[in-house]
């Protein structure tokens, strides 16, 4: 068997981060994004997931009744993924979305004003507190938005729309930088 050089090419791998006084836009190195699915009425499912996934590695973001994204900064091997599946099934099924979703971090003092150009969600910190997460339209593209800090948000977008989202965010940020 010949030797093949196999390297990852994440979406946005050719994008330079945007920096400026108002807004910073960046995409972190690829990590793990696991889609956890329980039955919608399973009240204890979230706790069950948290107990199985180490909280210092994974942070849990609500997506929908019975569905969460578990996001980690480091990639997960297929074997490790299978192990997690076995730990959670059949109560919770995991689907790997690590390659299917692209993470974009937007932050800075003007970040709420910038995101208001895309989403109808009221991002006032009293309404959308740190840790709040929601799926929403940003412009014409669906995305999952999490407030990770006072002026810091994580966007999870379908990989195929990542470049489009990036370009939109750069345009939306222009007046603040």
């Amino acid at each position: 068997m010949p030797e093949f050089q196999i390297s990852r090419r994440p979406a946005l791998s050719d994008k330079q981060p945007v920096t400026g006084p108002g807004i910073e836009i960046s995409t972190p190195p690829p990590g793990a994004i696991l889609h956890a699915l329980a039955q919608p009425g399973d009240a204890g499912a979230r706790g069950f997931i948290e107990s199985a996934l180490m909280s210092d590695i994974f942070s849990i973001r609500p997506v929908s009744p019975g569905q969460w994204f578990s996001v980690a900064d480091d990639p997960l091997s297929h074997a490790d993924f299978r192990n997690l599946c076995e730990a959670l099934e059949p109560r919770v099924d995991l689907v790997d979305q690590s390659h299917g979703r692209t993470r974009i971090i937007v932050q800075g003092p003007q970040v709420e004003a910038m995101l208001a150009k895309g989403t109808a969600i009221d991002l006032h910190i009293d309404q959308f507190t740190v840790g709040s997460a929601a799926s929403t339209l940003i412009g014409h593209v669906s995305a999952h938005l999490t407030r990770t800090g006072e002026h810091c948000f994580e966007i999870l977008v379908l990989r195929s729309f990542a470049e489009n989202m990036w370009d939109d965010l750069v345009r939306m940020s222009r007046e603040f930088n």
């Binding site: 109808a120 799926s135 339209l137």
Partner: peptide
């Protein structure tokens, strides 16, 4: 009921 007020475009 799950997400709060959202625009009809969604």
């Amino acid at each position: 009921p799950h997400c709060g007020l959202r625009p009809k475009e969604e």
